[in-house]
């Protein structure tokens, strides 16, 4: 249930580099969907999906770092809380400029979401460490990262389904009203929690975990592309699905290769023996 109890995760890419990749890649992907409006097309929706892959890599790496201390509740809990915080923050940030409560240009929406997510993450992290006495030294920092990544994943996938991150014009009718938001919620949480949950153990290594993260994010990207068939035109949806499928195949291959390389031995067990063979 819990991960390997003990110290911090080690090896591979340094955390700050992964954070930079996640923040810049994720926000860039979301903002690049604005090219849709510039060129009056929907073909750039694929950028939202690619942005969400960067954010997933960051989120999965943050989960990996915090869960290697052993949470006691299993890895899935932290993925669910990531999207729980992320979805509240994402919708708040995207909707705030459009309500007219504060005079903010709509283009700042994703950045506001991201900051609000980090704020909620900080509060949850402080509560866990100071009041609930979890005593994980990196809890506050990790919760900020996980909430931020969850928020970026949610916005990236929504932008890829709707073709834009404008809330009232695009996300509300094509993602929220259609119910795809539930898919984005659970799918996004799975991509963040699953990689470490599947790879944890004494021989866990960062690059193998992150291969799974990219591969899972690509699957959700394909599903988001499929969902966007009803929201934007078929060519853009097909492009999102195709790119997602391509990334999935490449990274699934990489993951399988690393498993075969690092396992002591990989053997086929065949089918279960029949009753006669057992006698």
């Amino acid at each position: 249930m819990s991960a390997v109890e003990g110290g911090p995760a080690s090896g591979g890419l340094p955390p700050n580099k992964v954070i930079a990749i996640g923040v810049i890649g994720g926000l860039a992907g979301i903002y690049l969907t604005m090219l849709n409006q510039t060129f009056n097309t929907t073909i750039f929706s694929v950028m939202g999906g690619i942005g969400s892959i960067f954010a997933v890599v960051w989120g999965a790496d943050a989960v990996r770092r915090v869960c290697s201390y052993g949470l006691g509740t299993g890895v899935p809990s932290i993925g669910m809380v990531a999207l729980g915080m992320g979805i509240v923050a994402a919708i708040f940030g995207l909707i705030l400029p459009e309500t007219g409560i504060l005079q903010i240009p709509a283009i700042l929406g994703p950045v506001i979401s991201f900051i609000v997510a980090a704020l909620i993450g900080l509060v949850i992290g402080l509560l866990s460490n100071k009041i609930l006495n979890m005593n994980i030294p990196i809890m506050e920092k990790s919760m900020i990262e996980i909430a931020g990544a969850g928020c970026l994943v949610m916005m990236g996938l929504s932008a890829s389904i709707a073709g834009s991150f404008a809330f009232n014009d695009a996300i509300l009718p094509s993602v929220v009203s259609t119910g795809y938001i539930a898919l984005v919620f659970i799918g996004g949480a799975m991509t963040i929690l699953h990689p470490f949950n599947a790879n944890l153990g004494p021989d866990e290594s960062q690059y193998r975990t992150l291969y799974v993260a990219v591969e899972k994010a690509a699957i959700i990207m394909v599903i988001a592309g499929f969902a966007s068939l009803t929201a934007i035109d078929a060519v853009s949806a097909a492009l999102t699905m195709l790119v997602g499928l391509l990334i999935f195949l490449v990274y699934f291959n990489k993951f399988m290769k690393s498993v075969h390389r690092e396992a002591y031995k990989v053997v086929g067990t065949g089918l279960l023996p029949s009753a006669e063979e057992l006698e």
Binding site: I87, L132, A182
Partner: peptide, 11 residues
């Protein structure tokens, strides 16, 4: 409601 539910359940 789901988001709030998960945050509280996990805490």
């Amino acid at each position: 409601a789901t988001g709030v539910f998960y945050v509280n359940a996990v805490l």
